[in-house]
Design a protein around this nucleic acid. Structure first.
Lengths: 189, 189
DNA sequence: GTCTATATGGCGATAGAC
DNA sequence: GTCTATCGCCATATAGAC
């Protein structure tokens, strides 16, 4: 395991603060206090507050892009691909609880990287929708507007970070199985 | 139709700005510019920025509480109650698109009303979970952890505000029917 | 690598003229 | 009801000593 650099530590602590109050409400003084140093000292390790936000959001967004590329490359059925996407979100969310909050809530505060982020997100949603449309065409899934299905499933998956940390006894494998059931087969018996 | 007061207009415009950038990133000068007046003039109609946030969040949270009370009072089946809750969220979200953003993203910036809000939310989630547990016990719905089912359904419903405004041709009745299908019966054919 | 001191500017909110 | 002017404070970021 590589030793965490001071820069990485700052970004990790910043993500935690961003989850609690949001990017705009967290000051460099708050971050410095959490690091037990003075605000000016932060600037020996990072260039700006904005750079911290970029590091957090873009790195996670690119993980999702890589994951989706892998899902698309498989020749699995639509339902199997959906299960792979669910597993992808559980995996990334559980390993980036704090970063997922910034990705979901603070992406609009990106500056130089805003368009890059928006393209990654838009491409991801289009790929997701394409999988659903193929499932409708092949008769695997119900013929309801793909937009509504994608919205319903994806917002649940995007909110996982809100929920995973609350249950310390949560078993990620069991959570993934439960989500497979609920999101694909519904709750009715 | 009652004429909108200047105070109500300020709160409505503020909610729209809060949706775009979040409470902390919106300044009283931004709000004044959107109202075509100077920042100081706002204070003839509102007491503080914090009061605006309280007005937006608490009024909507109380609408949900009233709606849930009505659902609990009916003697419908669990599945019917779930459908009533889905309809409640579509109704409130479509009529408070901007306010729902503040409710979801900026509740942590409440000060005096923070505990009041947290109690309303917690009670709502407990009522929701109770309905699901009754459904499991009666055999109406699958025997999966009620926490996971509630999380999955409720996060989709809480995110409706993100999605409703994007589709200008969206028919709310059709959206409600589609969500009933997807959230209760899943997407598999 | 951290500190103190500081530059520069924006913040919420108030006072008082019109 | 809106304005100009301003208060007191806090923001991000930099300079330079240690």
């Amino acid at each position: 395991m590589k030793q965490e650099t001071r820069q990485e530590e700052i970004i990790r602590v910043a993500a935690k603060l961003f989850k609690e109050k949001g990017y705009s409400a967290v000051t460099m003084r708050d971050l410095a206090t959490a690091m037990n140093i003075k605000a000016a000292s932060l600037y020996n390790h990072i260039n700006s507050k904005q750079d911290i936000l970029e590091s957090i959001i873009i790195s996670i967004a690119e993980k999702f892009t890589v994951g989706m590329t892998s899902v698309l490359a498989s020749d699995a059925t639509c339902i199997e691909k959906l299960k792979e996407i669910i597993a992808l979100h559980v995996e990334i969310s559980s390993q980036n609880i704090y970063g997922m909050a910034a990705l979901n809530h603070d992406w609009m505060h990106l500056e130089a990287q805003l368009n890059h982020y928006k393209k990654l997100r838009s491409d991801y949603e289009n790929d997701f929708k394409t999988i659903l449309i193929e499932g409708v065409n092949s008769g695997e899934i119900i013929d309801i507007k793909p937009d509504v299905m994608m919205f319903s499933i994806l917002t649940t998956l995007r909110s996982l970070y809100l929920w995973i940390p609350k249950k310390e006894d949560v078993n990620l494998k069991e959570l993934t199985n439960n989500l497979n059931e609920i999101l694909i087969k519904g709750v009715v018996k």
